[in-house]
Structure formats: structure tokens, C-alpha cells
């Protein structure tokens, strides 16, 4: 088959037990999914892949089921991206993938291989200087418990880079996928308005 290799995915170690793949049909929308028992694999399949995160390449051997979020947190120790729902609902896991904000909990690590991932840990400069968005969040007290904050900041940077930070209303709409249960929302909007002009000419997508 001609489906491999693609950038980032180095190869697959094997791994299916006998009878692992059934001949039962179908697809996506029509899959009667849960109706059929799925076979138990005797061994866990492992994907060798390279994740480029904050400018560094990491070679990992992962179960294909591992999400980008779990790879960052559990394999690379980058716990800035948070797990708040693991279902793409809260936004706490937001990272930039090739400069665009995405939910790392709904992104397979394998799918992210070959792309450039930026996490909250990749924002500050090497001498410890804060990104303007980080500084703005501090200045405006744009968080309380802080748990959603890395996701908010990554989303805020994405929102500015996407050109969705034109007006406060636009910011509010663009940031509505990042739940903040402490409800720091007005301060988050103020922070984005402060950081936006300081971000001109600066684009975060090194991965």
C-alpha cells in the first residue's frame, strides 16, 4: 500500500495478533460501531514517530491511541496543556499546530507528527522573557485558578494570528471555546486587547 511513509511517522512496529482485523465492513457515518464486539489485540501496536514541539524533535514509540495531549503531558513532561474534559469541550488543552490553535485532546499524536507544535512552555524567550500575551494575562489578572490559562493564552495568540481579535465582540466570540470556570472572561478580553498590538510582526509557530 502506498499510504506510508509520511513525514513524522517513522514506522510501525507490529503487532497485531491473529484475527485482529475483522472483515466486517463499513465506515464512518454508517458504522454500526458498538454493535459488534471488537477483537482484543494480543499485543499493543506501537507507532514510532517524531513530534516537533517548541522547536525540539522528540522520537517517541506510542500506542496509536495516544493523543497529542497525553503525549505532551505524559511522555514529554510538558504539563502546561491541561486535561479538562478529554473530549474537545473545554479548550484547556489548546496548543498551536503549525501556527493554528487546535485541541490536543482530539488530535492523535500520530496525526500531529510531522507538524510543528507550540505549547505554553514554548512561548517565553530563552532568557525567560514573557510573550506579550503572557504578560498581558498577568497585568489584567486574566485568570484565577489558572488551570485553563495555558489553553486561554494559546488560544488568544491563535485568535490574534487568525485575525479574529478586531473588536472586543469578535474576541469574545473567538475565545468562547475556552471555558474558564472562574469566569475571568472580561479580563481575558482586556489582556488580548493589550497584547494584540505588541504581537504585530511576531508569529508563533515554531514547533
Amino acid at each position: 500500500m502506498t499510504t506510508q511513509p509520511t513525514p513524522g511517522v517513522v514506522g510501525r512496529r507490529s503487532l497485531l495478533g491473529s484475527g485482529a482485523v475483522s472483515a466486517a465492513a463499513p465506515l464512518l457515518a454508517v458504522a454500526p460501531a458498538a454493535a459488534q464486539p471488537t477483537p482484543i489485540l494480543k499485543e499493543t501496536a506501537v507507532l514510532d514517530l517524531v513530534l516537533r514541539v517548541n522547536g525540539q524533535e522528540h522520537r517517541l514509540a506510542l500506542d496509536p491511541r495516544v493523543t497529542l495531549l497525553d503525549a505532551l503531558r505524559e511522555e514529554l513532561g510538558l504539563t502546561g496543556a491541561k486535561k479538562g474534559c478529554d473530549q474537545g469541550q473545554c479548550g484547556a488543552c489548546t496548543v498551536l499546530l503549525d501556527g493554528r490553535r487546535v485541541l490536543s485532546c482530539l488530535t492523535l499524536a500520530a496525526r500531529a507528527a510531522g507538524g510543528a507544535v507550540t505549547t505554553i512552555e514554548g512561548l517565553a524567550t530563552e532568557d525567560g522573557g514573557l510573550h506579550p500575551m503572557q504578560q498581558a494575562f498577568l497585568d489584567h489578572d486574566a485568570f484565577q485558578c489558572g488551570y485553563c490559562t495555558p489553553g486561554q493564552i494559546m488560544s488568544a495568540i491563535g485568535c490574534v494570528q487568525e485575525g479574529h481579535a478586531g473588536t472586543p465582540d469578535e474576541i469574545r466570540e473567538a475565545m468562547s471555546g475556552n471555558l474558564c470556570r472562574c469566569a475571568a472572561y472580561p479580563n481575558i478580553v482586556a489582556a488580548i486587547e493589550q497584547a494584540k498590538p505588541q504581537m504585530a510582526g511576531r508569529r508563533t509557530e515554531r514547533g
Binding site: M1, T2, T3, Q4, T6, V9, R12, L16, V21, S22, A23, A24, L27, T38, L41, T44, A45, L47, D63, P64, R65, L108, A110
Partner: peptide
């Protein structure tokens, strides 16, 4: 568990998807 494939062309995608 599942096997993961990437397809870089439509025919490859169709072939990969046709196998289970």
C-alpha cells in the same frame, strides 16, 4: 485499539479503508 494509516492520495485512502 486500531491501526493507524496515513493516506497521501485518494486511491490509497480508499484501498486502506477497504480492508476492514
Amino acid at each position: 485499539p486500531f491501526t493507524y494509516d496515513r493516506a497521501d492520495a485518494v486511491p490509497a485512502a480508499l484501498r486502506a479503508a477497504g480492508s476492514g
